[in-house]
Design a protein around this nucleic acid. Structure first.
Length: 303
DNA sequence: AATGGATAATGCAACGGGCG
DNA sequence: CGCCCGTTGCATTATCCATT
């Protein structure tokens, strides 16, 4: 008694006609006849009454059909349950976060509204981690120098300059970075990717920035900037739009100042379903972020 | 060797049209 | 109407073949 013969029996029992059952099951009619006979032999009881050229399900057959129906249905349910489970992913995503860290809580919150079973483990750059940490996904703003990884860009954004309202450049439409050579900068700590990016921008402009405040967190940079304590670099999209009424954001004309956020993963490592879903979600999130940003504008209403 | 399938042949019973 | 007989539809049996 195997699944095949049970399925055959089920079809024959419902139609009470072997020929039509064979058509539906896409096998020859004698094959059905043989199957049924084998089944009856195994059960030691006839399942059909044969009267002339017709067959009719008898009492034994009826009883057996009830069981077969429920057994096959249980298996079907099992199948869909597993499918559900794989589409509604569970498990932990390990994320190595090198850039855009302060957006991550929002992303995770949104993602977990859709997939509540998903768990996250975050690795941060400043923690003591090996050179090639084990992660499912990495979010960074400079190309990841880890062998065996692939990546895809999710967002390219302009890096703007934030200056206090009363700053001598506040009414300008745009600035050249070299004009800020003598200004005091509020910046992230060394080691943060944005800091490295902006340092090299300054270097390209021909000066080393004078850092007057060095912060751990973007939020700290932003509040110091709002207080008018210095100038700072602000990524146009990921650090949000306006920095408050006391601050003016200026595009940098030269050098061209952008950064690209990308998401990376190990190519030889199996990506779990939940990681796949999150990756797609992150890509979408940044896309949405940029679209929302474009709708707002202009950058410097005072200019 | 066992299994699952195909084809051809066979046998049975109902159907249906024509004829007495 | 009722009977006869060819036709049709169907299950079964026999044999064979491919796959495992």
């Amino acid at each position: 008694m195997d699944l095949l013969s049970l399925r055959y029996f089920q079809t024959v029992a419902k139609l009470e006609n072997m020929t039509r059952a064979a058509e539906i099951l896409q096998i020859s009619q004698p094959a059905i006849s043989k199957m049924i006979k084998n089944l009856e032999g195994e059960l030691n009881v006839k399942l059909f009454d044969r009267t002339g050229k017709y067959i009719r399900l008898n009492e034994y057959g009826k009883r057996f059909l009830v069981k077969v129906d429920s057994a096959l249905q249980t298996l079907e349910e099992g199948k869909t349950e597993l499918l559900d489970l794989s589409e509604r992913p569970t498990g932990t995503v390990v994320i190595f976060i090198q850039a855009g860290s302060y957006l991550l809580p929002d992303m995770i919150t949104l993602f977990r509204q859709k997939y509540p079973e998903a768990q996250f483990k975050l690795l941060q750059q400043d923690q003591e981690i090996s050179r090639y940490p084990a992660f499912d996904l990495c979010i960074s703003s400079t190309p990841l120098k880890i062998p065996g990884t692939a990546s895809t860009p999710v967002l390219t954004e302009e890096i703007l300059l934030a200056v206090p309202n009363e700053h001598r450049l506040a009414t300008r439409k745009s600035v050249r970075l070299i004009e800020l050579a003598e200004d005091g900068f509020i910046s992230l700590k060394i080691g943060k990717q944005l800091r490295e990016t902006t340092d090299s921008l300054c270097h390209a402009a021909g000066f080393a920035p004078r850092i007057i405040y060095e912060c751990d967190e973007p939020s700290m940079v932003r509040s110091l900037v709002r207080s008018g304590l210095g100038v700072s670099f602000i990524p146009a999209v990921t650090w949000g739009g306006s920095q408050g009424s006391s601050v003016v954001l200026l595009p940098i004309e030269e050098p061209i100042s952008t950064r690209t956020i990308e998401i990376s993963w190990y190519t030889n490592r199996y990506m779990t379903n939940v990681a796949k879903k999150f990756k797609a979600f992150v890509e979408d999130y940044y896309k949405q972020l940029k679209e929302d940003k474009i709708k707002k504008e202009p950058i410097n209403p005072k200019a």
